[in-house]
Design a protein around this nucleic acid. Structure first.
Lengths: 223, 223
DNA sequence: CATAGTTTCATACGTCTGTTTGAAATGCAA
DNA sequence: TTGCATTTCAAACAGACGTATGAAACTATG
């Protein structure tokens, strides 16, 4: 009651299980067993399984977005209303990557839960997820401020690619580890963030002098 | 019998449904309804649901890998045993991207099925998927031949990022379309492949003159 | 045509799912 | 304590799932 122990035990257990095993493989009975509460407690406290998932998602979604925007805002204020493109991208992918791969177990569950949610499309989440676009628009705007001369479409692609690299890196660490025989160090989170940000930033800045057509042709001609 | 109509109808319907809606949401009853065959036909022809999925995956996996390797081989032979890095990356991501987003409906189902399979980790597939690493090793080797001076670890990351951008682009076309208000054209598949390949290639070549440390610091200092 | 082998079909089985129920337990105010 | 509201609990529910069964329909060989 005071802290509603049962309720939060369910949330914690559910988040961890969903993060570890995905939505499809986890049943309410798994969750209540992990939380050590009665089966009916879920429906009593949350109404339904879907509402439990939805609550988990909105909570974490708001937290992630807040963290990203704080980092962005701090950077832009420090730069007098404009931040370097690398810093903008870092604010975008940093929180999630640090969360997923950092040492904090609770944060890791939370971040990995969000990755699952962004991949496995479960009905209660799908409805809410549209808001994410509004959130990303703020980053697109910051990127535009960082690179005012850059074609808008390039910026959207850059943002898209940055998120793609971050998500795939979290989701499929196993394959990269195997492929590289462990040479790609996935424990050094900061180095990894640097790598992703620098690739995305390079894609947006390296050839700003060249024309778009020139870039295209140089690749096309290699076919 | 002659063509085993029932068997192939099941395969076709299953592939389309799994591609559209994912593994979790599709039941055998959905599949047999779409294929217009009897429920028991699945177990009669394939043994079990898992074996059906496995057959689907193995078939498509082999086909994709063959297509990629053909493209790589042709390019390397044309270049006297060595292909430009852009061409190697194109052979890696091209077949899947063209398959998923191209006009051919059957191919699109097949490619999108493979994307689902690479994301939603269902037991019958997980076991087989380890072979993919062996397949990717061949591309890592080709990349090494294209860029012999480049640090091995950078190449693995580059390969990883190229696949990441390709997969995310296929999986989440909706978000990018919304974010860009339709300005990012996802129908022009070739332009999209160019974009992904050029970003990945740029990440691997643009700063070959600079030291790795230099690149890192330039980004780190922007924090 | 008759017969053996293959394929289809309706139907049912057992299990697992999310949800509901009504009683028991608990906490707290008067 | 008594009384009332909240929370827990064991048990059961209806429905959906993958799978199994045995009879019917079909195909093709002798």
């Amino acid at each position: 009651m005071a802290t509603d122990h049962t309720r939060s035990a369910i949330l914690t257990a559910a988040e961890r299980l969903y993060a570890d095993r995905g939505f499809a493989d986890v049943t309410l009975r798994d969750i209540v067993a992990a939380a050590d509460v009665n089966l009916a407690a879920v429906n009593y406290h949350f109404g339904s399984k879907d509402e439990l998932i939805a609550e988990l998602f909105v909570t974490r979604s708001l937290a992630t977005n807040r963290e990203r925007l704080n980092e962005l805002k701090a950077a832009e204020e420090a730069g007098g209303g404009r931040a370097d493109i690398g810093v903008v991208l870092r604010a975008l992918v940093g929180p999630t990557l640090r969360g997923c791969l950092g040492p904090d177990k609770q944060r890791s569950d939370a971040a990995r839960f969000m990755i699952r949610a962004s991949i496995e499309s479960v009905p209660p989440i799908r409805k809410i997820k549209n808001r994410e676009v509004d959130h990303l628009r703020k980053f697109a705007a910051a990127m535009k401020r960082a690179l005012p001369d850059r074609d808008e479409v390039d910026l959207y692609w850059g943002l898209h690619f940055a998120l793609a690299m971050a998500h795939q890196t979290i989701r499929d660490t196993e394959r990269l580890t195997k492929l590289s025989d462990g040479k790609c160090d996935l424990n050094d989170v900061d180095a990894m963030i640097d790598r992703i940000v620098s690739v995305a930033a390079a894609a947006l800045t390296a050839n700003v002098a060249r024309s778009k057509a020139g870039l295209r042709v140089s690749v096309l001609s290699a076919r």
